[in-house]
Design a binder for these strands. Sequence first.
DNA 1: CTCTTAATAATTGTCGACAATATAGTGATG
DNA 2: CATCACTATATTGTCGACAATTATTAAGAG
Lengths: 222, 222
Amino acid sequence: MPNTAQPAITSADKTFYDLRSDIVDGSIGAGSKLSEADLASRYNVSRAVVREAINRLEACRIVDRKPNVGARVVTLTPEGLIELYKVREALEGMAAREAAINMSDDEIADLNALLNTHFETVQGEQRYYQEAGDVDFHYRVIMGSKNQTLISMLTEGIYHLVRMYRVQLGMAGPRVTTAFDEHKHIVQAISNRDPELAEMLMRRHITYSRNNIERKLAQEKQ
Amino acid sequence: MPNTAQPAITSADKTFYDLRSDIVDGSIGAGSKLSEADLASRYNVSRAVVREAINRLEACRIVDRKPNVGARVVTLTPEGLIELYKVREALEGMAAREAAINMSDDEIADLNALLNTHFETVQGEQRYYQEAGDVDFHYRVIMGSKNQTLISMLTEGIYHLVRMYRVQLGMAGPRVTTAFDEHKHIVQAISNRDPELAEMLMRRHITYSRNNIERKLAQEKQ
DNA sequence: CTCTTAATAATTGTCGACAATATAGTGATG
DNA sequence: CATCACTATATTGTCGACAATTATTAAGAG
């Protein structure tokens, strides 16, 4: 029998994923109290299962929990989002560097193909991909680093947080105008097996995003 | 009454800390099965409490859990330790850079004082501090970054993992010969408010540690 | 003797109930 | 009227029991 490798989804897993989705996409707003009893009846599971899910969300820093008081969806400050982007810059810069070293030729070819698909989308519609394409690109670079520690930090931690912050601060997806070119250059550096350049371009790419956010936040303050 | 701000330690917290200590310092070895029932009777708490502790350890990547099978202390490959050091390099490099920007003058003065204390220790005994001093130095730089996301990633995640790996792979503390000078130069860069240099020196410092480890691992293979 | 299969035992996942703690409300008192 | 103390309520923390799944052992066939 071929090893189909069932993940063996447990009820707590599912509740965790569901709850995370509801929070990240804004169905459960910032600062909301997460009552264990309420959630238990909402998701049709026991309180213990909800507790486990909340514990995991706390580990991802998506909720904040106080002993004997309860858990709340984190209230996000603009400064917090900036902090997050700085960490992202350091980690994804490293990911790009390692990807330039460790990605296989096939994987790089796939990445180029992905970018070409995106290019056609850009031609057709005015704007570059909204969100999915951007996530897809970054995701592949991260995986290309082949560093498991780095991969799980980014894909299980930071990314959901970034998405949540963006939704709750009312920011649209990534910048659409210049992002495509930046992606293209990063892929070129990776294709040329130039780790230093890949890192630098990725850092710059994320810095631009951060500046973009800072600008928007500054506008709102007025 | 002055706000003494009790953290309100819960039973699950304590069990988590105890268990983590026992694993990190090697009392519970690599690959050990963590039976919920056993641990419950050992720590005199219910299985639910142990479960919560194990869940948190899983979030820290200290244990590996498979649904319906159980949790084991992670078995650590030398490659895993190298991976960890690379992430550390990226994150602590960033910490040093941000510390050079965000530490207060007083905090920098304290850091210098700490280093002087260490210097006298070096004079007295032959070797530089074993472990505590090294941790203390890095800890202050990390806190100096003032970036909460970064701080919790390093102090709640990576540091315990590094310690565990070192213990289980039978490595002593940090290199004793040259580490002190490296620390001194990093503090100088921070004192001079030179973020770029501080980052570069910290990265190099950690790279040296990694090379040191790689060398030892290569020796063992023979 | 080895491999497959079925029954058994052990462990984890889930649940509802009780205990401990914090919050809200009420009333008394200065 | 404000403040404090106390009570009542609601929520979380902890526990033991049951259900579901996996690992182990035993039995039988080839």
